[in-house]
Amino acid sequence: MKRVVVLFFLNVLFLGLLELKAQVKVHKDLRTKTWNIIGLRYDKELSPGKWGSVYPAPLKSLHNKVIELPGYMIPTKVGAKFTEFMFSIVPVESCPYCGTGDIPAMLQVKTSKSIAITDKPIKLKGKFIINDSGNDQSEFFLVDAVLILQ
C-alpha cells in the first residue's frame, strides 16, 4: 500500500512539473505612449441595442499620421514572409486567440516589401489609419509600413 501511495505522489509531482514546463513564458509587452493611445478605443451603446466604437480625441489625432511602433508579428496565414499581418504589443503565445493571456492592443499591417516572420520584437513605421466604416476588417491599420528595427 505504501508503494502505491509513493508512486501516486511521484506521478502527481512529475505531472505537475510537466505542466509547469508547458506553460507559456511570460513576455514583457512593448507598450509605448502611442500603443496606450491606440488602446483608448472603447465600445459604447450609441442607441438602444446599437453598439459602436468610440475614438477619443488623442486617438483621432493619430489618424493619417506616420507613427513608429514596436511590437510582435501575428501571422494571419501560413508563410515565411508577409506583406500583411497583425501587429501586437505581445507575442502570439500571449494572444488569447492563439495562446494565453488578455486581449492585447492590435492593428493590421500592410507593407509594400515583405517581412520575414519572426517571434522577436520588431519596430515598424507607417501611416496609422482608423477604419470606422463598420465593415468586418480591422479597426486600425498601419499602411505603407516599413521595418526599421529587427
Rank of each mutant, 00 (worst) to 15 (best):
T100M: 12
E139T: 09
M73T: 07
M86E: 14
Y42M: 06
K120C: 04
K65R: 14
L40Q: 13
N11V: 09
N135D: 13
G49T: 05
L149T: 09
G101E: 09
P91E: 06
Q150T: 05
T83I: 14
T32N: 05
G39P: 01
F87W: 07
L17R: 03
K2L: 12
V24Y: 00
R31Q: 10
V6Q: 00
N135I: 01
C95D: 15
K77N: 09
I129H: 11
L149E: 15
E68L: 09
L7E: 03
A145D: 05
C95H: 15
Q137D: 02
I115Q: 13
K25M: 02
K123Q: 14
V90A: 12
V54G: 07
K127V: 15
G79H: 02
E84G: 06
F87V: 04
I103D: 10
D29F: 03
L46H: 06
P121Y: 04
L15Q: 05
V4P: 00
I129V: 15
A57E: 12
T34D: 02
H27F: 08
V26L: 09
F87I: 04
T32A: 04
Q150G: 10
I117R: 14
F140K: 05
N135V: 00
D43F: 10
R3H: 10
G126P: 13
K25A: 10
N131E: 05
L7M: 08
R31L: 12
K127S: 14
L40P: 04
S47I: 02
P56Y: 02
S138E: 04
I89E: 15
I74F: 08
S53Y: 07
D144E: 12
E19K: 10
I38Y: 04
S53E: 05
V143P: 04
Q137V: 00
L40I: 07
P96Y: 08
P56D: 05
E19T: 08
V143L: 07
F85C: 14
Y55H: 05
P75M: 07
G49D: 09
I67D: 03
L124Y: 06
W51I: 09
I117N: 15
D136L: 02
K110A: 14
K77G: 08
K77E: 08
L13P: 00
T118P: 02
Y42R: 12
Q23C: 01
F141L: 12
P58R: 08
D119S: 14
G79W: 01
I117T: 09
T34S: 03
D119H: 11
K44L: 13
E68W: 04
F85H: 13
L18S: 08
K113N: 14
V66Q: 13
K120F: 02
L149S: 15
S112E: 15
F8T: 09
S47L: 06
D132A: 11
T111H: 09
S138R: 00
V90K: 14
A145Y: 01
L62R: 11
K120W: 02
I37D: 09
Q108K: 15
V66I: 15
D136G: 05
K125Y: 14
L17G: 08
A22L: 05
V109F: 07
S138F: 00
D119P: 02
K25T: 06
I117F: 15
R41I: 11
V5E: 06
Y97C: 12
S133G: 07
L62N: 10
R31P: 00
I130Q: 06
K2T: 07
L18H: 02
C95A: 13
K110Q: 15
